[in-house]
Simulated assay, not measured.
Amino acid sequence: MNRRTLAISALLLASSGTTMAADSSPALQKCMDSANTTAAMVGCNAQETKVQDKRLNSAYKTALQAQQGPRKQQLQDVQRLWIKYRDANCAFAGSATGGSIDQVNGSGCVLDMTQTRAEELENLVGP
C-alpha cells in the first residue's frame, strides 16, 4: 500500500466515526437508512447538523453566562478558534479522495464535531 492509499484509508476510517453520530439520533439514522444518493446523505447530515448547531448555540450561551472575568473572553476566543478549526478540518476531510464520498465525509465531519463541541460546552456548566 502506498502512502496516499494509507492516508485515504485513515481518513475514511476516521470519518466513519462521523457516521457513528447517527447512532445517537434516531431521526438521522432513519434518514440515512432511506438515503439512496450522495445528495440525500449530505442532506441528512445537514438536517441533523441544524439540530446540533441549535444545541451548540444554547450550550455556548449557557457556558458563557457561567464564566466570570477573563474566562468569559477566553471562552469567546476559544469558540471562535474552534469554529475556524472545525471548518478547516472538515474541509480537509471533505476533500480526501476527490470522489463524491467526500461530500458525505465533509458534512459528517461538521455534524460530528458540532455534536462533540455541544457536549463539551454542556459539560462546562454541569447538568
Rank of each mutant, 00 (worst) to 15 (best):
K72W: 02
D53V: 04
G108Q: 10
M41W: 10
Q52M: 11
C44R: 01
L81W: 07
A39W: 08
I83C: 08
V104F: 02
D33M: 06
G69H: 00
G43V: 10
G69M: 00
A91H: 15
Q47S: 15
V42K: 05
S15E: 15
Q115F: 13
A14M: 11
R55A: 06
S16C: 11
A27H: 08
L56C: 01
R80F: 11
A59Q: 08
Q68D: 08
A39E: 14
A22I: 05
T116G: 13
A22G: 05
T116L: 14
A46L: 12
N45F: 14
D87A: 03
A46R: 11
N57H: 04
K54Q: 12
A66V: 04
Q103R: 14
W82P: 01
P70I: 04
A93S: 14
G98C: 02
Q29T: 14
D77H: 08
L13Q: 12
D112H: 12
D23C: 10
S24P: 06
A93W: 13
L13P: 05
V51C: 00
Q68V: 09
K50C: 04
A93I: 15
A91D: 14
R71Q: 12
A39F: 08
L111H: 09
Q52H: 02
A35W: 08
Q103K: 03
K61Q: 10
G108Y: 11
K84P: 07
A22W: 03
T62W: 02
N105K: 08
T37E: 05
S24F: 12
S25D: 10
N36Q: 12
A22N: 06
W82G: 01
L28Q: 12
T49S: 02
Q29R: 15
G43K: 04
R80C: 07
N36P: 05
T19N: 09
S100R: 12
T19M: 11
C31G: 02
S34T: 15
T62I: 05
N45Y: 13
M113P: 01
M113F: 14
A63Y: 03
V42A: 08
G17N: 10
M41I: 10
R86E: 03
A21I: 01
D53Y: 05
V104L: 01
K61L: 09
G99W: 06
L28R: 07
D33N: 13
D77E: 15
D53S: 07
G106C: 02
S100L: 09
A40C: 06
P70V: 08
M20K: 13
S95Q: 13
V78R: 10
S58V: 06
R80M: 09
